[in-house]
């Protein structure tokens, strides 16, 4: 396999993403963890771009960084007091969890590397955005409507629960 410019880009972005992800789970400061999280989200967005899933890349930024990460940062700020303590960030089972995670990755890697995927080498010619849009209102119209209801429910519920008394 020839290593090209794209491979390098991929490796750089992947490394960035993983470092950020590690930062999320290892950082001792919750706020820093959330910043790492934003980094990881951004890295994943770029990865989507490398797979020509542009819409998803943008949606990733919009939803994950613009909404979810903001919400997380926001809640961290609202509950500011909890970060002042110097208590450890991890619980008693962190050791086991680490072992589990490493083992899991090992197994997954081992399995994944053995597989010869039936990859279809094909350039994307169609207008993916249009395809996505059409799919959402034809084949996927039922889930689309469902998630509309779900989002309204979640919205109302979240407001109801988080409202000050």
């Amino acid at each position: 396999m020839e290593i090209t410019f794209f491979h390098v880009i991929f490796l750089v972005v992947a490394a960035f993403t993983l470092v950020c992800a590690l930062g999320v789970v290892l950082s001792r400061n919750l706020f820093h963890a959330s910043i790492w999280l934003i980094g990881a989200f951004a890295g994943v967005a770029i990865l989507y771009w490398t797979m020509e899933a542009e819409y998803l890349a943008i949606a990733q930024i919009m939803v994950y960084i613009g909404a979810i990460a903001t919400l997380i940062v926001f809640s961290i700020m609202l509950s500011r007091g909890m970060m002042l303590g110097r208590a450890p960030m991890n619980n008693f089972q962190s050791g086991i969890s680490a072992v589990v995670a490493v083992l899991l990755f090992g197994i997954l890697a081992l399995v994944l590397l053995q597989i010869n995927w039936p990859v279809v080498q094909q350039a994307i010619t169609s207008d993916q955005i249009a395809q996505l849009g059409e799919a959402l209102v034809s084949t996927y119209v039922v889930p689309f409507q469902t998630i509309a209801v779900l989002l309204s429910v979640a919205l109302i519920g979240a407001i109801m629960i988080a409202r000050e008394h």
Partner: peptide, 12 residues
């Protein structure tokens, strides 16, 4: 990423 996330979810 999955393993890291799982670790975070279990250990935090």
């Amino acid at each position: 990423l999955f393993s890291i996330g799982l670790y975070g979810a279990l250990a935090r």
